[in-house]
């Protein structure tokens, strides 16, 4: 692709990933424009988490490039790191700190756009702000982890199984949150078992990829 037509947003260019000597995917290409969303599906072991980790930069791709706003995220990690908000399997919560303290730490570490109280309100745990995080239920912990993403405005959310342990009310709130993020011009890439209501989202089924051709 030429410099003139480099698209904004997130582009995966012929990605290839192997784990433990097994090929997960190869020549994987997609592009997500600002305001867009990508839903990754597929059976366990199809490589959803691996793809998320490759996109984030935690796991180097065996081949291919990832572009953010037209720039290679490996050669120029700065803009990508500032735009990226990562939600992994683990919630990265310190039980000894209060809910607000947990969030304030991530806000100081670079997530910016919304204040800590705003993010807590958006995920519906504002009333728990001064409680030690150790007191939270599993669902409340996941919402606290989501609040970390709600701190950011714009940018790219990479969410690996965001719906785990969420009840139906929280699921609806998550849908609203993602819609707000996309309306702000943000991008969401979501790997999930659950059917999330994402209007206009692209879908990528990793289970249906033909890996034999590699």
């Amino acid at each position: 692709m030429t410099a003139a037509t480099q698209p904004a947003g997130l582009v995966a260019d012929h990605l290839r990933c192997e784990r433990g000597g097994r090929l997960l995917f190869a020549d994987l290409c997609f592009a997500v424009a600002p305001g867009g969303a990508l839903l990754l599906t597929g059976p366990n072991g199809a490589g959803k988490t691996s793809l998320m980790r490759v996109l984030s930069g935690l796991l180097p791709a065996r081949a291919g490039r990832i572009l953010w706003q037209g720039r290679d995220t490996v050669e120029e990690p700065g803009p990508w790191r500032r735009a990226l908000a990562w939600l992994g399997h683990d919630n990265a919560i310190k039980p000894q700190l209060s809910v607000a303290e947990n969030l304030a730490f991530w806000s100081r570490l670079g997530a910016s756009g919304h204040s800590v109280p705003e993010a807590l309100e958006e995920t519906g745990i504002g009333h728990l702000a001064d409680l030690p995080a150790a007191m939270l239920s599993a669902g409340q912990r996941r919402r606290l982890a989501l609040a970390r993403l709600a701190l950011t405005r714009g940018g790219c959310w990479l969410m690996d199984e965001p719906t785990v342990t969420l009840d139906s009310a929280s699921l609806a709130r998550l849908g609203t949150m993602i819609a707000r993020h996309r309306a702000d011009g943000g991008i969401a890439v979501i790997a999930s078992h659950d059917a999330l209501d994402l209007p206009g989202a692209q879908a990528l089924d990793l289970g249906a990829l033909d890996t034999a051709r590699a």
Binding site: L58, R81, W86, N91, L109
Partner: peptide, 14 residues
């Protein structure tokens, strides 16, 4: 490492 904080530190702008 165990609670996932390390992933976020590795992905932070710092």
């Amino acid at each position: 490492m165990e609670d996932g904080t390390l992933e976020l530190l590795a992905l932070a702008p710092l």
